[in-house]
Design a protein around this nucleic acid. Sequence first.
DNA 1: GGGCACCCATGACAAATGTCACCGGTACTC
DNA 2: GAGTACCGGTGACATTTGTCATGGGTGCCC
Lengths: 201, 201
Amino acid sequence: MIRVLLADDHLLIREALVLLLETEDGIEVVADVGRGDEAVDRALALKPDIAVLDIDMPGLDGLAAAERMARDLPGCRLVIVTAHGRPGNLRRAMAAGVRGFLGKDAPGARLAEVIRQVAGGARYIDPQLAADALAVEECPLTPRELDTLRAAADGAPVARIARSLGLSEGTVRNYLSAAVTKLGADNRHAAVRAARDLGWL
Amino acid sequence: MIRVLLADDHLLIREALVLLLETEDGIEVVADVGRGDEAVDRALALKPDIAVLDIDMPGLDGLAAAERMARDLPGCRLVIVTAHGRPGNLRRAMAAGVRGFLGKDAPGARLAEVIRQVAGGARYIDPQLAADALAVEECPLTPRELDTLRAAADGAPVARIARSLGLSEGTVRNYLSAAVTKLGADNRHAAVRAARDLGWL
DNA sequence: GGGCACCCATGACAAATGTCACCGGTACTC
DNA sequence: GAGTACCGGTGACATTTGTCATGGGTGCCC
């Protein structure tokens, strides 16, 4: 019997997924939680074979939870199920040691199949998402450029960005200008959108 | 037997929800689809008692689908299930004649309960979302201000906005300036975020 | 050591943006 | 008819921005 912990922030979805997994032979859902930090706590207590994590969650997102669990609970194998198949998410998940990654538009039977495969030691990456991730080149932005872009993401003026990063305004403008040029955007706000779409933010 | 049509763009979620509803007595899922336009087509063909619609969908979003179905299929009662309980969405749903509105963080049993209530002629609005919607004052922006704000949402420069709306650049700047002032934002990009958060965009 | 990438900064200039006053026109209400 | 709200526009101005050249500093690799 494969013991599964399921984490998704929407109760309705979580209950439905539990029901779906319970109809599968050999799979038992030992816990279901709605927060990333709670997922880590429960996993430490219950030591499930597999943790199935959504990315969008309060407290700690699914990827951060995966990173912690990979460190503190190496016996537990990780599967990410997400609505947002951004290349950056996939990359980050792979870096965290996640062994299964699939989108929410996969058929239900596939989730069970992936859980079995991963429990057996194999890996499974959604082919569509993998192709997208490989098609997108590496992020050309330097760490500092990413910082300034992130700080600009909510429409803050340069002065506030400079203060929040402890930089001079001129420096911030230089970084933003470089980011805008590299991304081929009209201005920094379009650059923020572009970077986010490519999963670089 | 209540005949239900279910629309959600994520196959995994949809299958799980079908399973959840099928465990309920007196409810039968007669069709499940992943696109808003498809939902309308299938509903016209099958004439279900209830249509359960997600908002985020390709083709036609759940609210637009609800508006069409309310017009073309008055016998079919509408329930919206969404992850994004923005006040604007709720308002638009009510205007379209939707009779049930609940978040995806509701418990599974509630969905079945709401379907039964709505099939019986009652209404059900998620109390939390209803409170949020009532707490937010009416949108103070004029239609034209909303247009320009929408056109500015992707970071387009004023010149492109003016062209796309057939206005002079000065006029566009005036509308944007008014919107920024009314929303108390630092600039139009922050204004876009603010308006979107309040469900006005 | 030289080359290179990155970090942080300054100064200067052009372009875009935000703000204001003010114009006329339409439509609706009191 | 007066008042009000919205639409569309112009012109002017200050501020914010994007861009460029240029500087010095660090750390890494060949």
